[in-house]
Amino acid sequence: MSIDDISIKVTDLHSIGSIDALLNEIATRLQRFITQGETSMIDLKSLPFAPAEYEGLRTALGRGEASARLETIGDSELYETHYPGVWWVTHYNVEGDVIADLIEIAAVPAILHSQPEDVRDGLERLQQQLSQKE
């Protein structure tokens, strides 16, 4: 017997209805972003999703033009959905487990911005390198 022999059916997603609710929420936030420039995040792990719904949400939001990848402690995957301004941000740990899964409404996800502290550190390193060459 393999895992495929266990008959698991995909539940009718409309009978649960959380996807529609979430899409409505995203639309509302997107509207606020346009009019007031307000960025925001939705923590997907805090929402009670059925396994199939999660995939349903991925399909509903689709994939857009931009994507990025961070190599921090563990990877992070960022991509803009089919709806510009709606980003799907997933943080992994070094073992590849998801540690945070977010929908971010913004022009660019905040985590993508270079951090002033890191920039300062980088400058320091660059100057150090230059001074060594001298």
């Binding site: 923590d43 792990k45 805090s46 961070l70 921090t72 402690i73 992070s76 943080h91 540690i99 945070a100 899964d101 977010l102 905040a110 985590i111 270079s114 951090q115 002033p116 502290e117 890191d118």
Partner: peptide, 13 residues
């Protein structure tokens, strides 16, 4: 700092 921020995002979650 970015890694730390990511860690904090995970913590917030």
């Amino acid at each position: 700092r970015r890694s730390f921020l990511k860690f904090c995002a995970a913590m917030a979650t």
